[in-house]
Design a protein around this nucleic acid. Sequence first.
DNA 1: AAATATTTTGCAACAGTGTTGCATTTAATA
DNA 2: TATTAAATGCAACACTGTTGCAAAATATTT
Lengths: 138, 138
Amino acid sequence: MDQLRETLKGHHLRTTTCREDVLSAFINKKNALSHGDLEGALGESYDRVTIYRTLKTFLEKGIIHKVLDDEGLRYALCSQQCSEEKHQHDHIHFKCNACGKTNCLENSHIPNIALPQGYQPASFNLLIQGTCPECVAE
Amino acid sequence: MDQLRETLKGHHLRTTTCREDVLSAFINKKNALSHGDLEGALGESYDRVTIYRTLKTFLEKGIIHKVLDDEGLRYALCSQQCSEEKHQHDHIHFKCNACGKTNCLENSHIPNIALPQGYQPASFNLLIQGTCPECVAE
DNA sequence: AAATATTTTGCAACAGTGTTGCATTTAATA
DNA sequence: TATTAAATGCAACACTGTTGCAAAATATTT
Ligand SMILES: [Mn+2]
Ligand SMILES: [Mn+2]
Ligand SMILES: [Zn+2]
Ligand SMILES: [Zn+2]
């Protein structure tokens, strides 16, 4: 409970119930969440706009990062100590076509890639789609 | 001009002016296009819905593929002989944060990646953001 | 504990995205 | 040219994402 306040304080954010609940949702559900997911989970309690603004704030402060998807953006917790200044990720995202869930594979890193002359890379987003272990088993 | 009809016929699609114009737009502009880009380019001529349906059809037939983006989907021509059955890509997409354009780097391939036990990959989408050669030069 | 300054929230309104149903028009074929 | 099947335009809808502004909540100072 105080964990949430700590995290928010650590990123120079005021503690509000909406922020606690959104952060809590990211921690409990372990997969990436869309705005729609969050609105479904706690939409009765807060206005849509507030949830959008919470996501935007969390992005800026380095609490969550975007997860690219072929049918809309999702968001997931930043595991490392991301901050407003440094916001770096090089892990892979996996979306299961069976159960629909998208997860961060924190330990699978995007390898170095040789780009054509002149391209200066700054950030990477790799989405692999397929079947996740739970769904393969069935 | 007949090139367009050929391509459409080759993918078992009737020739319509909208399809010709959309296909033409993809060929002329070389970067990835969003629905909004297309509507801007030829929105006076066709209904929004028709453009959406054209994109959907082109996707299904393997004429274009989705390009994931952090601020909305884009689409780009399939260079290889993609078809309704086989629709495989392993090249990289590069988005320039300066000029905003996203391009297929057809010759830069996504390397093999070791996934944790149980994950079965089927398709890959890698977006690299940074600065493109044109914008680096300035 | 109360007053103050600053942020955050809810609401309204809006622009954009993406989909569906249905009547009309168009393209391919006979 | 007539027939048939597919594509289009229009209306309507649900969802995504943003902005302005007044009201409420938080953090800070007295
Ligand atoms: Mn991630
Ligand atoms: Mn591409
Ligand atoms: Zn799954
Ligand atoms: Zn550029």
